[in-house]
């Protein structure tokens, strides 16, 4: 899609038009270590994009998300996010396979089969109750499992907190979406835009209380979001590397229980 190409080009060209932060001198080893750990050499530029994105979101995304939360009860919102998550299953499955995580790939496949049928096209998440919990899996995580470092922190227009690894991952996942492989035509285009729009609003609405909480309580929301994003991604990647689902499927734990008795 043209928008993604534009975003990608923008992301790649950012470093060129960026103002850089000045690292602390070597005489302050602790400050320097902190600077390296933060790994945000484009901080001045990132902060500008953060401020502008916030101002834009305040008049566009936030009202839309608030309206969405107001109009639909929590149960319906969960169903919308279930359907969207189910649509993302093929890409998630592909990434589980690329990460060589058979248990997680099996979970994703079973979730897609169960929720598409018994879950009425993904409206209900039946699979979680049957011992196949959801887990995130994207190409950014795949690159991480393969050993790629995240690179410097980026705050991107529309996409928000990111890094070069996740930008590449986002581009690859978008290109790999099977709906996009079904050819072109007005129907497909409308479907893609609708999915993108609904995904954006649904995800934003789900996260709105947390986002507002950070803005209300943090002294420096930019630094707080940066830390939250990094930790969240690291935890997701660590879970993927271990290949450990959040919980053990119901059927999987039964035999061991019987043995121990």
């Amino acid at each position: 899609m043209r928008l993604f190409r534009l975003l990608f080009a923008l992301a790649l060209s950012l470093p060129m038009l960026a103002a850089c932060a000045t690292p602390p001198p070597a005489s302050q080893p602790e400050a320097l270590a902190d600077y390296r750990e933060t790994n945000d050499p484009l901080e001045p530029t990132n902060r500008v994009i953060y401020e502008v994105s916030n101002d834009i979101a305040d008049v566009t995304l936030s009202p839309a998300a608030r309206a969405y939360r107001w109009a639909l009860p929590g149960g319906v919102r969960n169903s919308v996010s279930n359907v969207l998550s189910n649509l993302g299953s093929p890409v998630r499955f592909g990434n589980d396979v690329l990460q060589f995580k058979s248990r997680r790939a099996g979970d994703t496949l079973m979730r897609f089969v169960i929720n598409s049928t018994f879950g009425l096209g993904g409206i209900f998440d039946v699979a979680s109750g049957w011992g196949y919990p959801s887990h995130p899996s994207d190409f950014g995580m795949t690159l991480a499992v393969w050993g790629s470092p995240p690179g410097p922190y980026l705050f991107l227009p529309l996409l928000g907190p990111s890094d070069p690894r996740d930008v590449a991952g986002f581009a690859a996942d978008t290109a790999a979406n099977p709906v996009r492989g079904m050819g072109s035509g007005p129907g497909i285009t409308v479907f893609n835009w609708l999915t993108l729009g609904t995904t954006t609003i649904s995800e934003y609405a789900d996260n709105l209380p947390a986002i507002n909480e950070v803005k209300r309580t943090a002294l420096d929301p930019y630094a707080t979001f940066r830390s939250l994003y990094r930790q969240h991604r690291e935890a997701q990647i660590a879970a993927a590397k271990q290949g450990r689902p959040a919980t053990i499927p119901v059927w999987f734990s039964l035999p061991t229980k019987q043995q121990s008795e």
Binding site: P24, Q28, A31, L219, D220, A223, L228, Q231, H232, A235
Partner: peptide, 29 residues
Amino acid sequence: AEGTSMRITQRSDYASVITRNGGEDVQAL
């Protein structure tokens, strides 16, 4: 929560406030 630690997140928040105010004085925080 979701792999994010409250005290680590707030530590980055506080460090950023002090660093952006010269990095020498806790008074800013």
